[in-house]
Design a protein around this nucleic acid. Sequence first.
DNA 1: AGAAATGCAAGAGCAGTGCTCTCTTTTGTG
DNA 2: CACAAAAGAGAGCACTGCTCTTGCATTTCT
Lengths: 232, 232
Amino acid sequence: MPASKPTPRQRAHARTRDEILAAAHKELAARGADGLSLRAVAREVEMVSSAIYRYFPSKDDLLTALIIESYDAVGEATEQATGGRAAYGRRFVRGCDAFRDWGHAHPHEYALLYGSPVPGYRAPQETIVPAARTTVALLRVVEQAHLEGALGPRAPLPPASGPLRRQCHALSEALATDLPEDVLLRFAHAWSQIFGLVSLDLFGQTVGTFDPADALAAHSFRTAATQLGLRP
Amino acid sequence: MPASKPTPRQRAHARTRDEILAAAHKELAARGADGLSLRAVAREVEMVSSAIYRYFPSKDDLLTALIIESYDAVGEATEQATGGRAAYGRRFVRGCDAFRDWGHAHPHEYALLYGSPVPGYRAPQETIVPAARTTVALLRVVEQAHLEGALGPRAPLPPASGPLRRQCHALSEALATDLPEDVLLRFAHAWSQIFGLVSLDLFGQTVGTFDPADALAAHSFRTAATQLGLRP
DNA sequence: AGAAATGCAAGAGCAGTGCTCTCTTTTGTG
DNA sequence: CACAAAAGAGAGCACTGCTCTTGCATTTCT
């Protein structure tokens, strides 16, 4: 039973759902994740609060829909940025920049996705795939570089423990990639660094040190690319 | 006007304040930052909710007190771990482990300190110093190693832009350290990586990849230490 | 075309929240 | 010991998520 025939009723339902979602996004951007009030959303779309429950069984479900949309947005942005024909190092850095820029443009969404988990909220299965898009976009750049033999010299890495090597192996299979273990590890570290920097920046942890963090971010991303063996 | 003579009344006030704070900590640990309800705290200490306001003017002030306590706790833990006479690389890694362990032991506190900023809450000035303790503890290890000339070889770094060099310079003065610019930058990257990894882990961003993240964490911290030129 | 089924919005209401105000009780101190 | 200051109690306001019932509109079937 695919969308063989969207009845007028279904169309109306979907349209209202989208309206609610748009209003919720607006609220989220304006007031943040826990300032997000179902009643405020209801006011925005000129409905009574209880009517929202016809479209989203609970606030968590509304939140989930928002999270998925946001993951897709940031994933899309990063994918876009990593495309093109530039050198792999450049594409990687551009992807990082896109990630950071998106965060700056949507701080509340970023906080929702990458910040403290909302208490009582358990991320459902369907968020996992969109959540991975950003990371995978960056990883694909490294993968392409590796496949073309364009990966330059890298500093030696400490030896990996048994469990860690097993996780790398499992991850390789899950991602259907044949990146060598050490590249995978380097990528994990690079992603930690990138994510850490952007989070420190957006969560206000850089005040009094590297604030604004633009210059540090540029240097950090470039360093990460270099450590991965990506050439500019 | 220092605490020249704490009157019985002041003592009682301080005692009650501490009780409230302890109860709030308990609530925070149990239910998380926005599950933290003033009324629940009041119930815990067997007071009526309005009575709390004699001790904390608002929920934000209570939160601030909690934040400072928590920053001090994690800072203390990290400082402890970086002490001793072991090699600098070991001490650094131990500090990282302590940071991560504290986060695992107090996930809600970690989220409060390092996660999404609580909406509407603006961290007051007095949180800045305790907030820096953890980072400074790790930095001091690097500093000591540098002073003793024990900093080993490091991979080359991309060139730093003008603004970045200025920030490094200002930071050096603020920290009263004479670490060279490149070491400061490497430290910033290392801290980003450490922080990023712990946050990814604690915020559930590693599911399906490196989960549990213990092995990756160990490798990450070791790598960070190596990149800083710290010898095990 | 008329009747039945269905989706939908509205409204009231519950239990909870932060916070303010007033009033009474306790308690340390001149 | 009397009194003023501090602490606690309680009611109340505006808000929250969520549930349930009640009419109304629209679609679908006969």
